[in-house]
Design a protein around this nucleic acid. Structure first.
Lengths: 141, 141
DNA sequence: ATCTGATAGGTGTATCTACATCTATCTCCT
DNA sequence: AGGAGATAGATGTAGATACACCTATCAGAT
């Protein structure tokens, strides 16, 4: 008789739970933002840039919790649309990322749609849940 | 004088919070699972298949909260490694997905590594946080 | 002045994700 | 039997993600 391994404990997989929620929630935001021509990821990036001075790529990546190389790729569609600009920094190694006026216009136009998406979802995510997520992410080392 | 739009409310973006956590946590699991030759996504899929009879693709996608088309693509690397098998179903439209003996061996070998990844992260995600995530995902319609 | 190690970015490659759209098959109605 | 609508999957396309590895530049030591 075959001794089947028991995987029932894996039902509680934290990685699966968080990824699944991220998929569903991202789809939700993406659908709401679509008429504004932005994805959720792009909206987030533009918001970060809109709120500060031009930042070197590695610092922006750090703030967003992204790999530097991922941010390089994520910038592509925004560069193509003229929503962001990349300039050389004083430090010759750095590239400064900045939002353009067209980027400001796009993210401003998208803001009401973001609010709509946020309303229906954030209600279910109390501070304690967000804190737990952040703590789990920090523990992931 | 330029009237800057205020994006400070976007700091609380639920989509960003969940995506960021998903990135960090996925990296954590991926690193632990790497010596076993599996990604977190692949491990999850194999576990689902290991726990049940062969299922039509659309049903597996439903269980995983994935688009059917996404699952089609996610199967590719597992098919290439011979970890899963796809057979025609009685219903000529359906394809039945099943795990192979090699797939069983792979997911069994990865289980201790999954446990290790799970231990350090799940501690910070109480039931209430997971419930909130699930509720938020359900609200995302 | 120069060498060495650290830091910033980009590229190649692979995977994950979803939408729009297409084909094949099934079900049900007439 | 035959047609209409529903359902299951696959493919084209685009974006998001990370790792391994490469180049360019800087900072500090000698």
């Amino acid at each position: 008789m075959k001794e089947a391994v028991d995987f029932s404990e894996c039902e509680a997989c934290a990685c699966f739970a968080v990824r699944r929620a991220a998929r569903a929630i991202t789809q939700h935001y993406d659908r709401r933002l679509r008429p504004a021509g932005l994805r959720a990821t792009q909206f987030t990036l533009l918001v970060v840039l809109a709120r500060g001075e031009p930042v070197p790529l590695h610092r922006a990546a750090e703030r967003l919790g992204l790999e530097r190389t991922t941010l390089t790729r994520n910038l592509r569609p925004l560069l193509a649309k003229g929503f962001v600009r990349v300039d050389p920094g004083e430090d010759g190694r750095e590239r400064l990322i900045a939002i353009t006026p067209r980027g400001i216009a796009a993210v401003t136009a998208a803001l009401p749609r973001w609010r709509q998406a946020q309303r229906s979802v954030a209600r279910h995510l109390p501070r304690s849940a967000l804190d737990a997520l952040a703590a789990a992410a920090r523990a992931a080392r």
